[in-house]
């Protein structure tokens, strides 16, 4: 791969503030995961009496991890918005013409963008996890449970699938719209596949329900293998078919 284009893409993430936005959104939700879990009973009690009695158990560390699992979906919205126009915007503006006319191959162009995206997402997600752990440790005095790393990996792979869908669509579409449709569509649709009976355990949607099971001890970490493998295959298919289409695309 031509490193000079990879470097340009890396530099661009900072210059156009996309990295700061992505990291900022992940960090924002990470910082609030533990406090929301820890202080939710007090927050609810502070709401003026509406004739409803809310009795909540004393918050525990698991509640904070539930926040960790559910709030990441909000950060995935930012992920989709940032990647849904990765290539289509360059084609629409015409900036791609000057880059490719300098001998940068379409493959280099495609993978430099994707790998930089992968790097930015991975960093943001790792920081999301670490900041959540630190918050939980500060507010609950403990942070570890047996399925923590498998849970994080499971959510990470789900996010990567969403990002790849948005990115791949941007390589074949004329505008950012199909990228948004692919990303948001999967984000909404995939968790519903968990209701598909026995097949559900093999599908990528299971990656978002698995962490809850790991948290309450109803499932084991080995259950990640099938949905993770299927997700990685899906990612591979999306990337390779988008690249093939992009290489044949008229600009």
């Amino acid at each position: 791969m031509r490193l000079s284009f990879f470097k340009k893409e890396f530099y661009e993430f900072f210059k156009t503030y996309r990295f700061y936005v992505l990291f900022g959104v992940f960090a924002f939700f990470a910082v609030f995961n533990a406090p929301i879990a820890r202080y939710l009973p007090q927050i609810l009690q502070a709401i003026p009496d509406m004739g409803i009695i809310i009795e909540m158990p004393e918050p525990v560390m698991a509640d904070a991890y539930i926040q960790f699992i559910s709030n990441v979906t909000n950060a995935f919205f930012a992920l989709i918005i940032i990647f849904m126009g990765s290539i289509s915007t360059e084609i629409k503006k015409g900036t791609i013409l000057l880059v490719l006319s300098k001998g940068v191959s379409r493959m280099d162009f495609f993978f430099s963008k994707y790998l930089n995206g992968l790097l930015m997402y991975t960093f943001s997600f790792v920081m999301y996890t670490l900041l959540t752990i630190v918050g939980i440790w500060i507010l609950f005095g403990e942070w570890y449970f047996a399925g923590l790393f498998v849970s994080a990996l499971s959510i990470y792979l789900f996010g990567l699938l969403i990002m790849t869908a948005a990115f791949s669509a941007s390589a074949v579409a004329k505008s950012a719209g199909p990228g948004a449709f692919a990303g948001f569509g999967l984000l909404v649709f995939l968790p519903l596949t968990d209701f598909f009976g026995k097949a559900a355990k093999f599908l990528p949607g299971h990656l978002m329900s698995l962490p809850v099971g790991l948290l309450d001890g109803s499932t084991t970490g080995s259950e990640i293998i099938w949905p993770a493998a299927v997700t990685i295959i899906f990612i591979g298919i999306m990337i390779s078919s988008a690249l093939l289409r992009f290489k044949k695309r008229e600009l």
Binding site: E12, K15, T16, K93, G94, T95, L97, L98, S101
Partner: peptide, 11 residues
């Protein structure tokens, strides 16, 4: 190569 109405990275 110079395309018609070239477009650049604004930053």
């Amino acid at each position: 190569f110079l395309p018609e109405a070239p477009s650049y990275y604004k930053y």
